[in-house]
């Protein structure tokens, strides 16, 4: 099933429950090419679950998600093929510890997209240079700091040339002095008009980089706006309350 809507990702009445706990209740949202969507909200509000439903790391309980016009919630969809175009960055980095950085970056493009080793390594090297880690190609993940690991994780996803990047609290597991280096990489990506969905607690980043900010609580999107209005004139009571605590 396809739609005519030109949104890159179209979420319709998405719901997700774990046992009897409804984590997501009726989420509907369109994400367009070039959007940088920051999702904020208190812990347990369903932000991460929402993000993980987008590439079906969590199976949605109800509703539909269209990616490039294809219903990826349809069990007949080859989700692995669509995931190749949806890069994901995790809070805990999840680099492959038994592989060198270069292998971490090239294994998926080589095995899944049939690229030659030379081509894959060339592209990986370019991206490594761009995030300032060109000299770490032959290191193992355990030799890197948290901030370096997360930059590598971003590069790993980028090596698949994704259409959209999903970030699941990418700076929450980092020491404070390493947050900046990761946010800088993400800022550059946003500048290049990469479509991004970012679950984050970094209000400064959301205000500066996002094209849209969404507030989630209790399994609903309660408010959405351009960042300037979102932070200056919140309308929803719970959002006001939340912002008064975190800003």
């Amino acid at each position: 099933m396809t739609t005519n809507n030109d949104a890159l990702i179209q979420v319709q009445h998405l719901g997700k429950s774990f046992d009897r706990l409804d984590v997501l209740k009726d989420i509907t949202v369109d994400i367009h090419k070039g959007d940088v969507v920051c999702v904020i909200g208190p812990s347990g509000s369903g932000k991460s679950t929402f993000l993980r439903c987008l590439n079906r790391l969590e199976e949605p309980s109800s509703g539909k998600i269209f990616f490039e016009g294809v219903d990826i919630t349809d069990p007949k969809t080859d989700i692995d093929r669509h995931r190749q175009k949806m890069g994901m960055v995790f809070q805990q980095f999840n680099l492959f510890p038994h592989m060198t950085i270069m292998r971490n970056l090239t294994i998926a493009p080589m095995k899944l997209q049939g690229r030659s080793q030379r081509e894959a390594e060339e592209e990986a090297r370019k991206l490594l240079d761009r995030v300032g880690l060109g000299d770490r190609a032959n290191s193992y993940p355990s030799q890197l700091s948290g901030g370096q690991k997360q930059r590598i994780a971003i590069v790993r996803a980028l090596c698949m040339r994704p259409e959209v990047m999903l970030f699941d609290e990418p700076t929450s597991a980092l020491d404070p002095e390493m947050v900046g280096e990761v946010l800088n990489v993400m800022r550059d990506l946003a500048r290049e008009r990469m479509t991004m969905v970012v679950v984050t607690h970094e209000m400064g980043f959301a205000r500066e980089v996002a094209t849209r900010v969404m507030f989630m609580d209790g399994g609903y999107f309660l408010e959405e706006n351009a960042p300037a209005k979102f932070f200056a004139n919140p309308r929803n009571e719970r959002l006001k309350n939340f912002l008064s605590k975190v800003l």
């Binding site: 590439n55 790391l57 692995d80 995931r83 995790f90 999840n94 680099l95 998926a108 899944l112 698949m160």
Partner: peptide
């Protein structure tokens, strides 16, 4: 999850 998110089955 990291493997699956890259598109590996």
């Amino acid at each position: 999850e990291a493997g699956r998110s890259l598109g590996f089955n």
